[in-house]
Simulated assay, not measured.
Amino acid sequence: MSQGQHDDVDGVVAAWRRERPDLDVAPLEVLSRVSRLARHLDIARRQAFAEQGLESWEFDVLSALRRSGEPYQMTPGELLRQTLVTSGTMTNRLDRLADRSLVTRQASPTDRRAVIVTLTPQGRQVVDEAMESLLVGEREMLAALGAADRADLAGHLKRLLVAFEG
């Protein structure tokens, strides 16, 4: 951290060091900041999605379809794995997205028991605009870091995340 700059975590860490000098509270210096940044990111993402009339969960489903590439189709099971929700939750989400004409569902041409979810042109436009808005906000959040610092931070965070998801 730059000399002379302080954030709320500095106060929390200093207080714990004062009250419990026997504890190594160094992890708080990293993970409390990650936690606070995650809250700020969540707020910024909600705002970006709200500009397009989307909830975060709607963006998750639509963006999974969009990232799948032409013809922007997935099965509900594939969407479950992408968004980490239960089958019942996914069914409810797909119902709501279909009601808004952002996705369609039809029987698979190769297996009548299977369903194919397709991103509609309207859904594609909405998710593309939400993604553009999201990236503007995320660039602003990272503006305090230069390109090299962003790359270093991304690498460090990736190593931590791989340790959990590995």
Rank of each mutant, 00 (worst) to 15 (best):
G4M: 02
G4F: 00
Q5N: 12
H6V: 14
D8P: 01
D10F: 05
G11M: 10
G11T: 07
V12P: 00
V12E: 07
A15H: 10
W16V: 11
W16A: 14
W16R: 11
R17M: 09
R17E: 12
R20T: 13
P21G: 12
L23W: 15
D24F: 06
V25C: 03
V25D: 05
V25G: 03
A26F: 01
P27M: 09
L28H: 00
V30D: 03
V30W: 04
S32A: 14
S35G: 06
L37P: 00
A38N: 06
A38I: 02
H40L: 15
L41G: 07
L41E: 06
L41S: 08
I43H: 10
I43W: 11
R45C: 11
R46M: 09
R46K: 15
Q47M: 08
Q47T: 14
F49H: 09
E51I: 03
Q52F: 00
L54H: 02
S56P: 04
W57C: 04
E58T: 03
E58S: 08
V61D: 01
S63F: 10
S63Y: 08
S63W: 04
A64M: 15
L65M: 11
L65Q: 03
L65R: 02
R66Y: 14
R67W: 10
E70K: 08
E70G: 05
P71S: 04
P71R: 12
Y72W: 14
P76H: 01
G77W: 13
Q82D: 09
Q82C: 14
T83M: 12
V85M: 15
T86A: 13
G88M: 10
T89Y: 15
M90H: 06
N92W: 11
R93E: 07
R93V: 03
D95P: 03
D95E: 15
R96D: 14
R96S: 15
R96G: 12
A98W: 01
A98P: 02
A98F: 03
D99M: 12
S101W: 05
S101Q: 09
L102I: 08
L102D: 01
V103C: 04
T104Q: 09
R105M: 08
Q106M: 14
A107W: 02
P109I: 03
D111Y: 06
R112Y: 07
R112L: 11
R113H: 07
A114K: 11
A114N: 07
V117G: 00
T118N: 07
T120M: 11
P121L: 07
G123N: 02
G123Y: 01
R124T: 05
Q125M: 08
V127R: 00
E129S: 05
A130T: 02
M131G: 00
M131F: 00
S133R: 06
E138W: 07
E138R: 12
E140Y: 09
E140L: 10
E140R: 12
L142K: 07
A143E: 05
A143P: 04
A144S: 13
A144R: 09
L145I: 06
A147V: 13
D149I: 03
R150E: 04
A151I: 04
A151L: 09
A154D: 09
A154K: 06
G155H: 08
H156D: 09
K158F: 07
K158Y: 10
R159S: 15
L161V: 13
V162A: 13
A163P: 07
E165S: 10
G166T: 07
G166P: 03
G166M: 08
G166D: 13
